[in-house]
Amino acid sequence: MAKCKGIAMLVLLAPATLAWAGSGKLQETAGVTQIEGSSGGGLVPWATLAGYDSREETSASVFATRVSTDDYRLHSWGGAFSWHDRIELSATHQTFDLTATAFEISQNVLGAKVRVYGDVIYSRWPQVSVGAQYKELLDTTLAEAVGAKDFDNGTDFYLAATKAHLGALFGYNLVWDLTLRGTKANQFGLLGFGGDQNDSYEIMGEGSLAILFSRSLALGVEYRQKPDNLGFAEEEDAADIFVAYIPNKQFNLTVAWVDLGSIAGSDKQTGPYVSLTGYLW
């Protein structure tokens, strides 16, 4: 929690009036930070970039996320930089531990995303971005033990389309995202990449749908398909329902209920998700 407090302090102190600093997007249109550190919903990376920068601006943000399911705890924190609403770079550290024991796995994720078309609000067609998430597993013992083919690192590639429809739902703004991810990752990469059942890239579908109830409150649902590469235990798709509170362009807070399915033989891993993102400029 000390980390979270530090981040919150930084955010409160951050100057938001610099001319080149990102404030040139409409509130709520920068999305929040997804579990691997990219701009998105909670589980799904969106086509949006991490920050409120427009074409002449840059922005930087930090985030911390915690998911607590029945048997596991996933902690994710990091930062992202966005340049001219065109390129996003992110670095994230994840730790995953079994609540009952002291066992812990950690992983670093480096992300890059490029906006290739459009504007989430103003273009006729959805904003489209392509991205990659390079994942480096720091503790390979478990990945090795469960039969992952590659237990050092792996890279996910994705194509995301996101669109906001102004006043589309009885006057409320509606945001949706569809993402296709090419991946070999077992449980987000925490259990390595590829396995005895499958060791090639598969395309997974992911999606989010959110209603913006006010300028600062969004309610949404998400779904994320996951591969099932390992014979030793079934891996299931993930889903969540979230409320994002976005009071200003300096920070946002997302609270969700997440269903990660079965993880390493422990069924029905559901629980609360809390995430805080702060924008430094």
């Binding site: 409409l26 002449e56 601006e57 609403d85 300028r215």
Partner: peptide, 27 residues
């Protein structure tokens, strides 16, 4: 610029808030 355009939309939203226009009508 795009940033100035979006900033002006923010000002219009402020103007509508001050005029008591409901969120959904603003959208």
């Amino acid at each position: 610029t795009e940033g100035e355009f979006n900033r002006t939309v923010d000002l219009l939203i402020n103007a509508m808030n001050q005029a008591g226009v409901a969120h959904r009508t603003q959208n």
